[in-house]
Design a protein around this nucleic acid. Structure first.
Lengths: 249, 249
DNA sequence: CGCTAGATTGAGGTCAATCAACGGGTGTGG
DNA sequence: CCACACCCGTTGATTGACCTCAATCTAGCG
């Protein structure tokens, strides 16, 4: 559970520029940011913050996965977002200076960059480019949340799982029949607004359709089977969209 | 269904400055924006745009209500957001320049301000203050969506209705036992991820607890009955929060 | 090798959806 | 002014998708 600091003061401007949020910033600002930013490795299970805590630090995932989740009084818990490489965590709360709206926990061993919240808030106000990058980041998260609300409300359990697998297949770029589930099944289930049991049973239905499932490795019977779960938003991230290879049309 | 143009070119900088999004902007920019902005009255039922349509205009609600909704292939429909006075519509898509992520329809007779999407996109890039205001707007929407996902996943039907009534009570400011449902019950139901039937039955449960419900007028038996449905996020908008009058502690 | 955490499977229960019928207000046209 | 239609909301009966609870299985690991 111990987390080691890779570089307390990373001092690496180059690392920052590779992040969408920091693209195109002037050198002076990058220098300043790199001085206050911390890059650390975190073990699976590490709690980053709890909901309603004051927003002290701003985090960006460099590698690994962080889950943003909420609990209620009866102990139930639901995953709001799973954040992967290059994604920012709770950026809206950081900007508004309000308490974290949900809790965050490291879902798989990860490397995170963090910056004190007041500093990033200030720099957004001082630098127009950073502000624009921030709008882009939040906008994308906003879009994916709309997409997610839609999914959990209008899709059945099978459709949600199909949609999730399709997104994984598209993200993994190389057109392949192999998909790897990136984090625990219980988390995928909660993210898809279902219980682990239902998720397991649903995966079994995919087995019946010719999928091979061995722990976290999923093999599709055919490259295009998942395309029936596609929608406009998902398609826009697919590199076969609007090409001859897209079976939807 | 005919909609009349109040002022094709409003020319009223003063109206713009009263909107959070346009607060603190230089006069030149306000002048420019007021020249291209249109203020119109729209009748209930008017479709503003459909999902996947190219994002041509940016809308702000001046008065009334607009619903943002999604449909699926089987004809089901779900309300993602209900947007009231001073709220912006689909601002994330406008900024990103992607197609509208959902459809929008006027839920109650409304007055809307609209600006061609390319112009607002350009001005956000030119003016830091506007960009900051935009971050604030999107951040708030982002927060409320997180709040909403939480509500639909972790709360029961009764809790969702209680939560909704509480939010109405808090918004209406004047501490009163009277609440008015701002739009059709079927829309409230869909927004709360339930059917009109379930919503009706749930309201009946509140009647049994002493609520009086006559069409769209709800009377509470006691100012504090809804406080059991309060959470941190909701509390932060309540003017009795952290005062002696707050029954929660 | 036993231990534990994660995942699977089965049986049973439940909340909310569905289907269907009805009521009451509103608007329209004769 | 009344008759009719229509829409919205309500109510009742039934269904079903998913959850809950509990037992079992599997894989990693000290």
């Amino acid at each position: 559970m111990k987390s080691s600091i890779i570089k307390k003061q990373s001092g690496e401007k180059s690392m920052l520029t590779s992040l969408p949020l920091f693209a195109g910033l002037p050198d002076v600002l990058l220098e300043k940011l790199s001085e206050v930013s911390q890059v650390r490795e975190y073990k699976k299970g590490k709690l980053l913050f709890l909901e309603n805590e004051p927003c002290s630090r701003f985090y960006i995932v460099l590698s690994g996965w962080v889950k943003l989740f909420k609990g209620n009084a009866t102990g139930e818990e639901t995953v709001l977002q799973m954040l992967g490489a290059n994604e920012t965590i709770a950026e809206s709360a950081v900007f508004l200076g309000v308490p974290y709206p949900a809790s965050a926990q490291v879902a798989e061993d990860s490397v995170l960059l963090s910056i004190p919240a007041p500093i990033i808030r200030e720099e957004i106000r001082n630098n127009g480019i950073l502000a624009l990058n921030m709008v882009t980041c939040i906008s994308k998260h906003s879009q994916s949340m709309i997409h997610q609300i839609e999914a959990t409300r209008l899709k059945s359990a099978v459709e949600r799982v199909g949609w999730f697998l399709l997104k994984l297949a598209i993200e993994s770029k190389h057109v392949s029949k192999e998909i790897r589930l990136p984090y625990d099944k219980a988390m995928i289930a909660s993210f898809l607004a279902m219980t682990p049991e239902t998720f397991s049973r649903t995966l079994k239905q995919f087995k019946d359709r010719g999928f091979k499932i061995e722990s976290d490795a999923v093999t599709l019977p055919d490259i295009n089977v998942l395309c029936t779960f596609c929608d406009e938003e998902t398609a826009s991230h697919c590199n076969r969209h609007e090409t001859a290879e897209c079976p939807i049309k």
